[in-house]
Amino acid sequence: MTGDMMGEASTSIISALLLSILFVMGVAIAHLRNLFAIVMLSGIYSLVCAAWYILVDAVDVGFTEAAVGAGMSTAVLLGAILLTSRNAKPERRFARLGPLAVCIAAGAMLIYATSDLPAAGDPASPANTGVGLTYLQINWADTGVPNVVTSVLASYRGFDTLGETLVVFIAGLAVVLLLGFGERSLAETLRKLKKEDKVP
């Protein structure tokens, strides 16, 4: 059992380390005004999150966060920065008090809530003995798929995933509606390419 306890302790330490890195990066993002740096930091933020997920046995979430949060989000953000501006203006000082109050209120509420939350990692907590445990127990018999996350995602809660697919679809649709297909600029670019072919 000592090995387990050692493992547990080292997990806790690494977890604390990662979370403090997240905290520092969050503060840095709040202070920075260079949007490029902000976007890059947010990408790294996602990567650190991904590492943390894998540390706490959420491999699927970690993978997704790395691909979606660190990869796709950063790419889209960079595209948007290219089209808009590179720097943010400094915020007005007095404008920060209201948000601060909101955050303190929400944070206080959450900390109040944690006093009755089960201890972190408790295998007997309601969350970990409820439906979640049932999935682990019945999954193999029901679906024959070893990865429980996959079977919950696609089968038990397949309708959620359908909704999620719709959300992605809407996002694509919305961006196309707002910005066009890119086809107009495609035609332009093609013309330019042709010109370049001819001129030199």
Binding site: D57, N128, L133, Y135, V148, R157
Partner: peptide, 8 residues
């Protein structure tokens, strides 16, 4: 195992 539901 850890709880799969929140992961999903």
């Amino acid at each position: 195992y850890s709880n799969p539901l929140p992961h999903v």
